[in-house]
Write a protein that binds this DNA or RNA. Sequence first.
RNA 1: GCCCCUGUGGCGCAAUGGAUAGCGCGCAAGUCUUCGGAACUUGCGGUGCGGGUUCGAAUCCUGCCAGGGGCACCA
Length: 558
Amino acid sequence: MIKKEISNLIEKAIKKNQEQGIFPVFSISEILVAKPEEKIFGDYSTNAAMVIAKQIKKNPLEIAENLKSEILNLPMRPNPLMLSLRALSRQAIGKAKIFDKVEIKKPGFLNFFLSEEYLQKQVGEILKQDDNFGNLKIGKHKKINIEFISANPTGPLTLGNGRGGFCGDVLANVLEKVSCKIIKEYYVNDVGEQVKKLGHSVIGDSEAVYKGDYIYDLRKKIKGNDSEKIGEQAAKIILEKIIKPTIKKMGIKFDVWFSEKNLYKEKECDKILEQLKNKNLTYENQGALWFKTTDFGDDKDRVLIKADKQMTYFASDIAYLKNKFKRGFDKLIYFWGADHYGYIDRLKAAAEALGYKKEQINVIIMQMVRVFENGKETRMSKRSGVYITLDELIDEVGLDVSRFFFLTRSPDTHLNFDLNLAKECSAKNPVFYIQYAFARIHSILAKSKIKNQKSKIQLKIKNLKLLNHPSESDLIKQLIRFPEIIEDIVKDYQVQRLPVYALELVASFHKFYEDCRVISDIASEKELTQSRLALVLATKIVLKNTLDLMGISAPQKM
RNA sequence: GCCCCUGUGGCGCAAUGGAUAGCGCGCAAGUCUUCGGAACUUGCGGUGCGGGUUCGAAUCCUGCCAGGGGCACCA
């Protein structure tokens, strides 16, 4: 990754300067390399000189000058990614010039301009790595559990479930790509109060809360008057006949469907309560058993067993937490709606009480989704029965559009979903702009008759030096950003970077397509055709990888 | 009252403390002897309000204003 390479170069340059006594010795903080928005500031830039200036109280421009001259003197190290590929390694170690120039600007920026030679080489690199392009080892093979959706089995999935669902699924894909071992898990709350309420609803008595056609359908199927038993049966049917089919339709495959019932069957809840009691972390008050979560940063203590001797959900949640850790996960990731915000401290407190670290728990809070119809908000609760289900949305606008729609938004934004615009939006959705590029690529390759026979192009890699049109260079610069995007997502779990990147990548491709005719029949342009086909193929690889991570289809025709 | 999130052109959204704030829709004007026009180019137009920190703030701190969510022996 060029970004990493540049920051390594800077670090070396700093050390050299320190060795030579030009800089005093100081601890080097993380060197940030960014991609400037303005082209005139280069392809990559760093503020390192300004950061150092603050540390050692020297003029940043002077420091930048010192760094620059050292960087230009340093032998360019081969791309570490290339090293892993023996076939290319000899070529990589060659004296390829990475930068055209390194500039110093105003307050103290160091701006790097990549050389054409370097960029051209990256095209060959992408072709070699193919599906593996963007596979990084930064996940260190960590075992991670990602729990998402986990909607109660009391009704159809909502758009809110869709939001967490798609984002969780994509994060899992990304983490898998960086060598993490991922388990995607759905926790089924199939016992307790909600289930009883479901039972009452199916019976249709005075305690009924859930409404909607699916309840009336269940009423016809399930007879009796034991609300708990009926609720359990209904929950099972809802999970199997409503929720699971929707999740299949969402394109999501869970590794584990974890039933809360199991925790009780295996007495895991009792065991965990014993454990907490033995650690002296509980106390009784007014007939209830409390857990001293305030010892671990929660703002108030929480009840484990109510005065009526019923366990709270929190009690089983702690048992579930323990269960997960016992399965050997280094990290637990949760996608929750904003209405669960207050639950985070509680869960982290529990983790710490059990001897784990708070940092092993990552909760991503997705802000609420609200649905508007004809300018009025429609309630999304499963109880009301007057909402659009996720299932209906996917049927209406299609899976690709649905996925893209939710993935593009940052989890922090409140999402107002306008039903009236939904269908209209789908027709001019940016996802088609992306898919159209893929179809174009396919069409070009089909016409060139090489299709997926990469070997023919790879033989011509030596011709890549013909790729020197600005639109070609711009496209290559987009292509090599892909691993950077992956790395960024791994850092902060913000998956919206992926669709945003896809749009930028594809825009560069469309521009290239306008400016550079790929297939030429003129004999003298045969080699140019070959190298451009290589670039098209490289684009196809990166675009396909991006779409795969998002779970969006890559159509050959539209 | 306390805690969390948000406020970016007419609308929907981007932007690890960086340099001239991007994109889509819409609107206006253009491009072609279509390797697929679902494309490309150009234009109009924006960081809620006030302080502060910083060489530099949409981003951090603070006070307002507005919206959403959370503060149960509920799930």
